[in-house]
Design a protein around this nucleic acid. Structure first.
Length: 444
RNA sequence: GUGGUAGUAGCUCAAUGGCAGAGUGCCUGAUUGUGGAUCAGGUGGUUGUGGGUUCGAGCCCCAUCUACCACCCCA
């Protein structure tokens, strides 16, 4: 008999119950906030036609996308989705007559990438996106910021900043400084490393990419523009307001600022920062990124406006803006920063009902049923061997179940149940009818 | 995709080319109505996998897998 060696595909993970309880909590909080802002769920297949995915990524696609072919058919080649944005664009194009615009959907689901895994970077991971399709108004972008801030606050994050920029301003800066349109992608890629390599690093890289020293110098100065509130926008307007792209971008961010104020977004949690770039790709307007500022733990969300993408699947495009929470990173940080509320622990079981012996097993089962009817998450102890109280307490302790219900001959005779809280050893007997109420009280 | 580091008990890690170990965990008992603490006893391994060198390999060589790190790119 030769067993198959249990192994996981490279870059993919199992989540045991202890981890899933925490993940579900995070997903649940985020989902609740999405609902609060009127976003509704969308689900699409994990596979798309290869041609659907390759449209957006072109040449690089081969290296990044996981193919997923049926063994007995090579027609209609498939691939695992690479993100949730392309499926959204496809859905919008396919069902536009059935959807009500602006279309506000959220999507929490796994995506797959063929990249080499590293810590915090996997081949299978969850994305968590909210997008608004069909609205050009900056009200949409501002609403996403408000949603983002609310979600992070509800998860317990306090010291973070949503850094906001606009692709049009970056384009304007490039034009003002003398960067050619062909060099813009290079420029974006280099500036994206600002956080990592600093101003000197970006400057060096830009020069290495063959952009003239005086051009780089002008660019670097503009990039580092900063100020309270909209002061930096005023400055940029004075310097490069005559450049159409810049003027447009500046006006958009002003509108966003107005909308955010009306929505009550705390001003200390947002900041205009012209070093934000967001990869390469499809962004056309406002872009944003959230960083944990204290301590400096990197980026936990990103997003922006991509008004052209849906045009991939449709004659004319639709203005669209979206936000993506880096949910895997957020889950890591929840542990690092200790943000889980106390009741999110190693188990979701609230009380273990012990079984004193064979003869009283049925009575314990009845107690478990009573507690469950009252909505209490109850585990009824089960064992193939002998019922020993010590083992049952140890079981509860190891599984981190907070309460144990003891139901021995004495308790049954008196119509009571004895509850023990393991955290501090507090013990109390209570009439059966009041057991659920006492469980709730002891859980607080 | 390129380059580097590492893989020994469930976990964390030892072991000059010469008998594979410790701590922790787990099981049993001290304690047949109570977990954690203590004590006693017990359980722990094809040294990631496959080859090679050698009288002899956890250790050296080659390949491979996996994890991690730096690029590339990205979340």
């Amino acid at each position: 008999m030769s067993n198959v060696k249990p192994r996981l595909p490279k870059g993919m993970r199992d989540f045991l119950p202890q981890a899933m309880i925490k993940r579900d909590y995070v997903f649940g909080v985020v989902r609740e906030v999405f609902h609060l802002y009127g976003f509704e769920p969308l689900q699409t297949p994990v596979m798309e036609l290869r041609e659907t995915l390759y449209g957006k990524y072109g040449a690089d696609a081969e290296q990044l996308i996981f193919d997923a072919q049926h063994a007995r058919s090579d027609k209609d080649p498939y691939a695992l989705r690479y993100d949730l944005t392309v499926p959204l664009a496809r859905v919008v194009a396919m069902y536009e007559n059935e959807l009500k615009f602006p279309f506000k959907r959220y999507h929490i689901a796994p995506v797959w990438r063929g990249e080499r895994p590293q810590r915090g970077r996997y081949r299978e991971f969850y994305q968590c996106d909210a997008d608004i399709v069909g609205l050009a108004s900056m009200a949409a972008d501002a609403e996403l910021i408000s949603l983002l801030v609310t979600a992070l606050q509800r998860l317990g994050f306090t010291s973070f900043v949503v850094k906001i920029n606009n692709r049009k301003i970056l384009t304007g800066m490039g034009q003002y400084s003398g960067v050619s349109d062909e060099q813009l992608p290079d420029l974006y890629r280099s500036v994206d490393k600002y956080d990592k390599v600093g101003a000197e690093g970006v400057q060096k890289e830009l020069e290495e990419r063959g952009i003239a020293t005086d051009v780089v110098a002008r660019m670097m100065e503009l990039l580092q523009t900063h100020g309270e509130g909209t002061a930096s926008l005023d400055f940029l307007a004075r310097v490069m307001g005559h450049i159409p792209a810049a003027a447009e971008g500046i006006a958009e961010l002003r509108q966003m600022a107005d909308h955010m104020r009306a929505l009550g977004v705390p001003s200390h949690l947002v900041s205009f920062d012209y070093t934000v770039v967001r990869g390469l790709g499809y962004y056309t307007g406002p872009i944003f990124e959230t960083v944990i500022s204290e301590p400096n733990l990197g980026s936990i969300s990103g997003g922006g406006r991509y008004d052209d993408l849906i045009g991939l699947f449709r004659k004319t495009s639709l203005p669209t803006t979206g936000v993506s929470l880096g949910i895997e990173r957020i889950i890591d940080l929840m542990d690092i920063l200790g943000l889980y509320p106390p009741h999110i622990g190693g188990t979701l079981v609230e009380v273990l009902v012990t079984v004193f012996n064979e003869a009283t097993q049925a009575e314990s089962a009845r107690l478990a049923a009573e507690l469950r009817r009252a909505g209490i998450k109850t585990e009824l102890y089960m064992d193939d061997a002998k019922y020993k109280l010590g083992k049952q307490f140890a079981h509860a302790d190891q599984k981190q179940i907070p309460l144990v219900a003891v139901l021995g001959d004495d308790e049954i005779a008196q119509g009571v149940v004895k509850l023990k809280r393991l955290r501090d050893g507090y013990e109390q007997s209570v009439a059966r009818a009041d057991a659920a109420a006492l469980v709730r009280q002891l859980l607080l």
